[in-house]
């Protein structure tokens, strides 16, 4: 087993272990911190796949944005020292068995040999990916208006982010009692 395979298996156990702790921990703040570790491990997995730009986006948006937002809302709404109530035993057993069954079924499906459609790329090594997934190529294709360009989804998602921002302000705004 080569060194990169060892790195992959260590990263996978890290991601899955911290993810499991994030959904089972009884203290909500610890749960958020375990989620942060899990998301950082996923960023490490993207680095391992040589997708440096996605790893950077993952760290900036998830670790720097979403987890910080979650921690803010924990401090605003919870007594973070208190334990969360334990899940109902019947529900925990039921959902655990359903989840295990789903996992086994999906793993049976994964024996299907995945192959690319159409003709294989000549000399399709995993090594020449580094040039393709560079930030320059990603930016050029994202803003290109020709075929296979992603400028329309890019604009749509900017409208979506604006709508989400206005919606957040409208939802969370405090209405004074005399205005009601």
């Amino acid at each position: 087993m080569s060194a990169s395979a060892v790195v992959f298996y260590i990263l996978s156990f890290f991601i899955l272990g911290t993810g499991l702790l994030a959904v089972t921990s009884r203290k909500i703040f610890r749960s958020a911190i375990w989620l942060l570790f899990s998301l950082t491990g996923i960023a490490g997995l993207y680095f391992w796949l040589q997708m440096e730009f996605i790893a950077a986006v993952q760290i900036v948006v998830y670790v720097g944005g979403i987890v910080v937002l979650i921690i803010f809302s924990i401090f605003l709404t919870q007594q973070s020292g208190k334990d969360l109530p334990a899940p109902v035993r019947k529900r925990a057993i039921f959902s655990g068995s359903v989840v295990c069954a789903g996992f086994v079924l999906t793993c049976l499906l994964l024996r299907y040999p995945f192959r690319p459609l159409g003709h294989p790329v000549a000399g399709a090594g995993l090594e020449n990916m580094g040039a393709t997934a560079s930030v320059g190529n990603i930016g050029a294709q994202m803003l290109s208006t020709s075929e296979y360009g992603y400028v329309l989804p890019f604009e749509v998602i900017s409208i979506l982010l604006l709508a989400a921002m206005i919606g957040c302000i409208v939802i969370a705004i405090k209405i004074k009692p005399e205005d009601k």
């Binding site: 899955l16 499991l20 994030a22 749960s31 997995l45 959902s95």
Partner: peptide, 21 residues
């Protein structure tokens, strides 16, 4: 790995009753 992570998240969605979790 990604399937296991998906079903871990599913387990959390089934058992937790707090909106943040």
């Amino acid at each position: 790995v990604s399937t296991a992570l998906f079903f871990i998240g599913m387990y959390g969605l089934f058992t937790r009753r707090n909106m943040i979790t």
